[in-house]
Simulated scan of single mutants.
Amino acid sequence: MSRNESATPRPQLVNWDVAASTAASLTPAGPTMTPADIDRAVGNIRHLAGVSVDHVHAISRLDAARDLRDSELLVVDRASWSRANTQSFRALMEPALDQLAATKPEVLKSASLTLGGTVTGAQLGAILAFLSSKVLGQYDPFAPARNGLGGRLLLVAPNIISVERELNVDPSDFRLWVCLHEQTHRVQFAAAPWLKDHMTSHIGQLTSGLMDQADTLSERLGAAVRNITAPRARPGGAAAAPQGAASDGVPARPGGVLSLLQAPEDKALLSHLTAVMSLLEGHANVVMDGVDGSIVPSVKTIRRRFNARGASRGPLEKLLRQLMGLDAKMRQYNDGAKFVRRVVSQTGMEGFNAVWEAASHLPTEREIHAPDEWIDRMSLRRHG
């Protein structure tokens, strides 16, 4: 390769700056608050996030909760959440792009000419804009290292405040309840320092498969955006079910963005990642629900109103969640919580915590639905 060729910048399949700016411009406005009220709310959320760690430690019995200095906690707005996610997407995709540039430069060149990074960035930004108003918090283990810290916990203040107002619950109680869930994710990755690299490797393999079809990436992202923003109409004016959905509007399989990574050869990888995500979210839900009135006085009211919240969503909101695959994800997380509760009931929390010791201890997707098989594979002693 000539010196000039090696110096040629690699084409961008995704313009990450455009993705972040598009998401920021399309993000719905948050709750109306004065600057002073915002400052107080942010300070309170940050304080309660710190308070929640001791409770996570007491419930999970993971000593990793005693030292979380390898990650950081940020209370952010919706645009900042979107920007942070574009940074993490970029970090996850760059290795696959490097591999593609080295092994199949003709694919990368063709894709860059056909779709353009700006178009794809705008499409990704539209998806992030929708999600930015739904996420209460997120632990991001894949964030680019900053000040020597690898992961970051993002608590999205406008969304937390919007939901607590919608549910008409005590703000401090609700914020602590949310922080219990999100800090549990931070503790999980501290307890299993190998988990980040394990997930990065599997996601990287999926991304490589996606990059092999880079010339259709823009088309597929565009289809996801169009499905989100413009559901088709039936003859006669009724809204049509989205592609891949049953006649009652419930998709037969996760749709939208999730379907971008569902090529047949990726099924084993997707199954494994589904099991891991079910485990992580299910465990966090169990920890969050492990508190009683002595920690969160109005916890029973919060649980009841939060769980009933889905029933009050309008038809458009329900359709968008189906198209994005969010409802399918919630079902996975419920399965994960059932797995955790069954294992803890049979082996105690100490027995369950064997899951954090090695990648080989992670449950398969089958075992998520049949936890006794995981208990037997791990040779854990059953109670009673």
Results as ranks from 00 to 15, higher is better:
S2F: 03
R3F: 11
Q12S: 15
D17Q: 11
A20N: 02
L26N: 01
I45M: 13
S60V: 09
A64H: 08
S71C: 14
S80D: 14
A84T: 05
S88K: 02
A96R: 01
D98T: 15
A101F: 11
K104W: 13
S110K: 13
L113E: 15
G117T: 12
T120E: 12
G125Y: 02
G125A: 06
Y139M: 06
F142W: 05
I160R: 04
N168Q: 09
V169E: 09
V169T: 14
D170H: 05
W177Q: 01
H181D: 07
H185A: 07
V187H: 01
A191P: 05
A192K: 01
L195P: 02
T207S: 11
T207E: 07
G209Y: 07
A214M: 10
S218W: 06
L221R: 13
A224F: 05
V225W: 09
V225Q: 05
N227A: 12
R232S: 13
A233M: 14
P235I: 09
Q243P: 14
A245S: 14
V250L: 12
R253E: 14
L260H: 13
K267D: 15
S271Q: 14
A275W: 03
A275E: 08
V287E: 02
G290S: 02
G293H: 07
S298W: 07
V299F: 07
K300E: 13
I302A: 10
L320N: 07
G325P: 08
R331H: 13
Q332A: 07
S345G: 15
M349A: 09
F352P: 12
N353M: 02
E357R: 12
A359R: 09
S360P: 03
H361W: 03
L362M: 06
T364V: 09
I368F: 08
W374H: 03
L380Y: 08
G384T: 13
